[in-house]
Design a protein around this nucleic acid. Structure first.
Length: 425
RNA sequence: GGAGAGAUGCCAGAGUGGUUGAAUGGGACGGUCUCGAAAACCGUUAAGGAUGUAAGUCCUUCCAGGGUUCGAAUCCCUGUCUCUCCGCCA
């Protein structure tokens, strides 16, 4: 959520920010509602002050045996006015809140302005030493490999649940589990994260806190009976750990990493993208979340990206990094890097991680603050998160990049002690 | 799932209609004392909003949302959560 004071005091900056993010310019609407709100508050506060002072006098008058009849009827009137004004304020504030909750974060000044994904900027490309984009044998895609080696069964996954629910078998299941353990261990030992195992069903407040709701509501699963949402990412429960809290400045930055399955309806996105692992309703992901002091958040974002990169380099998976332009940035993000891994069968890059700085956008929604040691006042923290990483896309790259001409898979060295085997054949 | 009890400040815990944003104790912080420390004593210790250059002033908030009343932490209704007992159960 944007700060109403920021909108009030820097309306043009916000206006341009919304336009850059391909979002509707609601600044004038917000300003006029805000003005109405403040004028109503002024009126009701005055009446309330009047009522309070009368309330203090009434018992004294009674004690002195004075007649309170006139004051009481006067105050009855005042109270009625307060009630109706408060009603109006509730309405106006509800309206304002609704608009603000639907208004996206604006991008940081270092983010390139652009309309869509084509305007994203590649900032880095990393390839393993012996890597070559051309192969001298026929590359099988992950679906064919999965079938041939009996490690993935998309058809039976569909039978059990529907399309987009992958079934891992045998060494495929072991490899998936190994990958999760490897990534978590790596972040804990090399990057000093605290491990989290979060609830994977969350309530509405949590979904609103991180910004998935209301904008992305259609993409979320929802269990109506209990009012719970299966999480689309561990970002939701992990960021909400500190919802409504005031943290100690000396505890910052707080760094959490956690594994969870992720559930996404992906409403309306069927088609070519949806085959195999490319777009699924359930996948596994290790997520990194940071709570940091505002002045450090951009520095922390760069470190977050490196944390994700370290995993890919250890696995020797070719990847590139994109700096997303304003138009491609998600609702809550102020700046975001996508990390894409190479799929030789698809002959293209696949998004495996997204590392974002939300500044205080989520913190404001979720009311996550820290006490500034110098000013002694609470301030909103900055929150960041990054996939570290999503296994489904990673699995595609691991299988396809490590296949032999005979269609076997060589397990990356770093993973072997987790899988207990070196090859899938 | 059934029955009951409860939710107050950083914590513990009073408060059942009127200057109670809230007694008391603990903790934390500052000070006095001390060579230093402890003890003792004194003081400070909420968040949000409106207004104002500021100092300040005012409003709101005792789980949440409604209601009664001139006035609600206190009374009524609904919801959420916690605890105890019973049942069920990985």
């Amino acid at each position: 959520m944007l700060d109403i004071k920021l909108i009030r005091e820097n309306s043009n900056l916000v206006r341009q920010g919304l336009i850059n993010k391909n979002s509707a310019d609601v600044v004038d609407e917000i300003l006029s509602i805000d003005e109405e709100r403040r004028s109503l508050i002024l009126q009701t506060d005055e009446l309330k002050a009047k009522r309070n002072s009368a309330s203090a006098k009434i018992p004294v008058m009674k004690k002195n045996g004075q007649d309170t009849q006139q004051v009481l009827s006067e105050m009855k009137l005042v109270s009625d006015q307060i009630t109706s004004l408060d009603e109006k304020i509730r309405e106006v504030e509800g309206h304002l809140e609704k608009i603000l909750r639907h208004t996206p974060n604006i991008a940081h000044s270092s983010v390139p302005v652009g309309k869509s994904a084509e305007n994203n900027v590649e900032t880095k490309k990393w390839l393993p030493d012996d890597f070559n984009f051309k192969n001298d044998f026929k590359i099988l895609d992950h679906i064919e490999l999965g079938k041939k080696l009996r490690i993935l069964d998309f058809e039976r996954g569909t039978k059990i649940s529907g399309s987009g629910f992958p079934l891992y078998l045998g060494k495929g299941a072991t490899l998936e589990r190994a990958l999760i353990n490897f990534m978590l261990d790596f972040h804990l030992t090399h990057h000093e994260y605290t491990e989290i195992m979060p609830p994977i069903l969350v309530n509405r407040e949590s979904m609103e806190g991180t910004g998935q709701i209301p904008k992305m509501e259609e993409d979320m699963y929802f269990i109506e009976k209990d009012g719970l949402y299966p999480i689309p990412t561990a970002e939701v429960p992990i960021t909400n750990i500190h919802r409504g809290e005031i943290l100690n400045e000396k505890d910052l930055p707080i760094k959490y990493a956690g594994y969870s399955p992720c559930f996404r309806r992906e409403a309306g996105s069927y088609g070519k993208e949806s085959k195999g692992f490319l777009r699924v309703h359930q996948f596994n992901k290790v997520e990194m979340v940071k709570f940091v002091k505002p002045e450090n958040s951009y520095n922390e974002l760069e470190k977050l990206v490196v944390d994700a990169e370290d995993i890919l380099q250890a696995l020797k998976i070719p990847y590139r990094i994109l700096l997303l332009c304003t138009g491609d940035l998600s609702f809550s993000a102020a700046k975001c890097y996508d990390i894409e891994t190479w799929s030789p069968a698809e002959n293209r890059w696949l998004e495996a991680s997204s590392c974002s700085n939300f500044e205080n956008f989520q913190a404001r929604r979720a009311n996550i603050r820290f006490r500034n040691e110098t000013t002694k006042k609470p301030e909103f923290v900055h929150t960041l998160n990054g996939s570290g990483l999503a296994t489904s896309r990673l699995m595609v790259s691991i299988l396809e990049n490590n296949q032999t001409p005979e269609g076997k898979i060589i397990i990356p060295k770093a993973l072997q002690k987790y899988t207990g085997f070196e090859i899938i054949e």
